[in-house]
Structures are given as structure tokens and as C-alpha cells.
Design a binder for these strands. Structure first.
Length: 109
DNA sequence: CCGTTGACCCTTC
DNA sequence: AGAAGGGCCAACG
């Protein structure tokens, strides 16, 4: 046990969740992108912690790494994460990564 | 207030 | 292109 991610009292976690819940289907975002939008571009790790202890109802499966690789902590590991993205309509190539440059979404869009 | 931790990111070999 | 190490920031006890 470590970072339990406390209740909504500061704003960082609330801000991140607010963005993740807005990610449309078939699109993906990077932890660094979310962190930057919330005000801390270097707090990508914090976003990851929120992803695990945050609201499971949010589409965390649409959040991937900067290079397009999937999260290892996701339920089921990379395969489980890949299935979730495919369910959203995201197609994978021969690699276990997604085309971030093409699927990367932005809240202003 | 200080130390520890993490679904990461960046630089370098 | 892949692997290894260090650093970053926010939150808990």
C-alpha cells in the first residue's frame, strides 16, 4: 500500500478525472498530456496513481504512455488494456502499441 | 515538515 | 530499435 490517492480535496485528481471522463471513444491520451492539462507536465506519475485508485468508472483504458505503449498496471496487463482499446474501435498493428500521433485527443477538440 | 511511493518521462549506453 | 538508470511531482503517515 502506498499511494491510496485520497478523497477529492485538492484539485489535481479531480482535474485529471474530469479530463479522462471527457475522452471520446476511439481516442487516446498520454499521462504526460493529462498532467500538463492539469497544470503539472512532470506529474505523469501522479496521473498514473490516480488511474489506479481513481474512479474505475472512468475510461482509464484510453490513457496510454507517450510512446503509445500500454499500462502494465491495468487489470489483465497489456493484453487486457489492448482489448479495452479495441472495444473502443482502436486498431492495433503488429506492435502492442497504438498510433498516438493519430489517436491523441485534446479537450478543446 | 520529512520520508516514501507510483497504470511515468527523459537521457544515455 | 531496445534496455537501463535517474529524475520529476503530488499525496499519505
Amino acid at each position: 500500500m502506498k499511494l491510496d490517492i485520497p478523497q477529492i480535496g485538492g484539485g489535481f485528481r479531480e482535474r485529471v478525472e474530469a479530463i479522462v471522463v471527457q475522452i471520446p471513444e476511439g481516442r487516446v491520451m498520454t499521462y504526460g498530456q493529462l498532467a500538463a492539462l492539469c497544470g503539472s507536465p512532470r506529474a505523469a506519475r501522479i496521473v498514473g496513481g490516480i488511474a489506479h485508485f481513481g474512479d474505475p468508472k472512468l475510461p482509464w483504458h484510453r490513457v496510454v504512455k507517450k510512446d503509445g505503449s500500454l499500462a502494465e498496471g491495468y487489470p489483465g496487463g497489456m493484453p487486457g488494456h489492448r482489448r479495452a482499446l479495441e472495444a473502443d474501435g482502436v486498431l492495433f498493428g503488429n506492435s502492442d502499441k497504438v498510433n498516438v500521433e493519430s489517436l491523441l485527443w485534446h479537450p478543446v477538440d
